[in-house]
């Protein structure tokens, strides 16, 4: 555990830290503040108004934004299905490899990291004919995009889970549980998953963040998600597009904060 003792020379001084943080913060803050300011503009003539924000909740304007809300719904469904793919396929595979097939760890890691090296646009070229088949089996609903997203989030999800998996002695824990009479289902449910909670949550939240920010694949495969809809709307109503971009940004920020919170709490602390 880290101590709060000051180590002289080990880290930048208070002034240097403030300057660095300030400069970096400014780089991020300026465009965001500009976006916020933009959403309150009345028009090219100048002046400020709340109309653009109010329009979002105005029932009369509802039809205008329907497309956007549908897209948001699509994106949320995609996020859920993608997370489900990660939890149902990747997680058990990783646990199984860790416990029973340690030799397959390297190959699995390699396979899971590959998607990060392939640009989305290249991925789509390969995915297009695959989706010809997918459409025939599952139809062309937006959620089928999750199959592709399940692959693009692999590197992030793998890293988060593996970090947790290596920090816990899953082999000894499961052997101990087995020797106490637990079957494999109990080992997984009562012993392994609670100890992999942090990795699982981090993987899920990162997956959600990636899915909400995805544009290329959805756009090139002609599916509507949050990002494609934003681009669409921005062509007719730039204010609303920026408002939604801000909201999406806020949501991802909240997710990231959650991840770091989960990462810093130790298991078991909750009840002491």
């Amino acid at each position: 555990m880290s101590t709060d003792a000051v180590r002289i020379g080990a880290e930048p001084g208070k002034v240097a830290r403030t300057v660095i943080l300030g400069a970096v913060g400014l780089v991020f803050a300026v465009p965001i503040l500009a976006m916020i300011e933009f959403t309150f503009r009345a028009g090219l003539g100048g002046g400020y108004t709340l109309d653009h924000w109010a329009a979002l909740v105005d029932p009369e304007q509802n039809t205008k934004y329907r497309q956007l809300f549908t897209a948001i719904g699509n994106s949320l469904v995609l996020a859920v299905v993608t997370v489900a793919i990660v939890l149902v396929i990747l997680l058990p595979t990783m646990i199984l490899v860790q416990l029973q097939f340690p030799r397959l760890r390297r190959p699995l890691e390699f396979i899971c990291i590959v998607p990060i090296t392939v640009p989305a646009i290249v991925l789509v070229v390969g995915l297009a004919p695959v989706y010809g088949v997918v459409v025939r089996i599952f139809g062309s609903s937006a959620w089928t995009l999750a199959f592709a997203y399940g692959i693009t989030v692999l590197p992030y999800a793998y890293r988060s889970i593996q970090a947790n998996l290596s920090a816990v002695d899953v082999i000894t824990l499961s052997e101990a549980a087995r020797s106490l009479g637990a079957n494999w289902l109990n080992v997984l449910w009562l012993v392994l998953l609670p100890n992999l909670r942090r990795g699982i949550l981090a993987a899920s939240l990162i997956s959600v963040a990636v899915v909400l920010g995805e544009y290329t694949i959805a756009s090139l495969l002609n599916r509507a998600n949050l990002q494609t809809a934003l681009v669409q709307v921005s062509k007719s109503d730039p204010y609303v597009a920026v408002i939604f971009a801000l909201l999406a940004l806020g949501l991802v920020l909240v997710l990231l904060l959650l991840i770091s919170r989960i990462g810093s709490t130790r298991p078991g602390r909750k009840r002491t």
Binding site: V168, D169, T172, L173, E175, A176, A177, S179, V191, P194, N195, R197, P267, G268
Partner: peptide, 11 residues
């Protein structure tokens, strides 16, 4: 069984 490494369930 008691193991060499600490094997209590941490949670």
């Amino acid at each position: 069984m008691v193991f060499q490494s600490y094997s209590l369930f941490p949670h």
